[in-house]
Design a protein around this nucleic acid. Structure first.
Lengths: 121, 121
DNA sequence: CTGCATCCATTTCGATACTG
DNA sequence: CAGTATCGAAATGGATGCAG
């Protein structure tokens, strides 16, 4: 971060950051925290997610090695998703960021109201 | 995170997370780390950002109390952006996340190649 | 049950032109 | 210099239908 004078849009770390910081990834990892879970179960735990969005999110997480996908041969077929060790290690900074939002939400809300009032004036 | 059984899309922390995890916010905070900076200077430090995107990003960061905007009366006018104490506190978890990407980039890259090869097969 | 393909509405984004 | 406004292009998002 501090080591560059100029920040390039296709910095590898930035590109990776983008893949992690999307709408659902953090919540999927949170949902999977207790243990493996099946597709529809994950979906039920995430209010507002569509099948398409969840599928894409799971694919991306799988591709980046953050979780594993296991097909259980049965009928109907079952698919289980589980956090990988790499995904577990990512939970640490994610939780730190999540905690920051919880701790500072009030302060942010204050700032917003102040800002919006200045605009109205 | 662990305290909810069901994750709702409009959870306040999630909404705040969205405002922080966009394409440029983290990099803007990184650029402003050494000290206050003017609009065009920030823009020059961020390769690939458009004026519109940067303006929107700075507005959002300002509204959320993460940085302050100071107009210096002169001609032509100058505007200086500076990280607020709240913004400084956010840098901590941001840097943790950034460090994670740096440390694990290779491992992610391996996972990607493995995934892509499985697809091709 | 899981997930892909398609279509269409919505949103976002970049480029350009213009203002104080 | 630091924006705002506008417009078309592009990406995204949800809903639906279908398949293994």
């Amino acid at each position: 971060m501090a080591e560059c004078q100029r920040f390039v849009v296709d910095c590898p770390s930035r590109l990776l950051f983008d893949q992690l910081a999307d709408k659902w990834s953090m919540m999927v990892l949170a949902v999977l925290d207790p243990g493996p879970m099946r597709f529809n179960s994950i979906k039920r735990h995430l209010e507002g997610v569509t099948q398409k969005a969840l599928t894409q999110c799971l694919r991306r997480l799988e591709r980046n090695g953050l979780l594993t996908r296991r097909v259980i041969p049965a009928s109907p077929v079952a698919v289980e998703y589980e956090i990988s060790p790499l995904g577990r290690s990512l939970q640490v900074p994610f939780k730190a960021l999540y905690n920051w939002t919880v701790v500072n939400l009030d302060q942010v809300e204050e700032a917003r109201q102040e800002f919006d009032q200045r605009l109205a004036a």
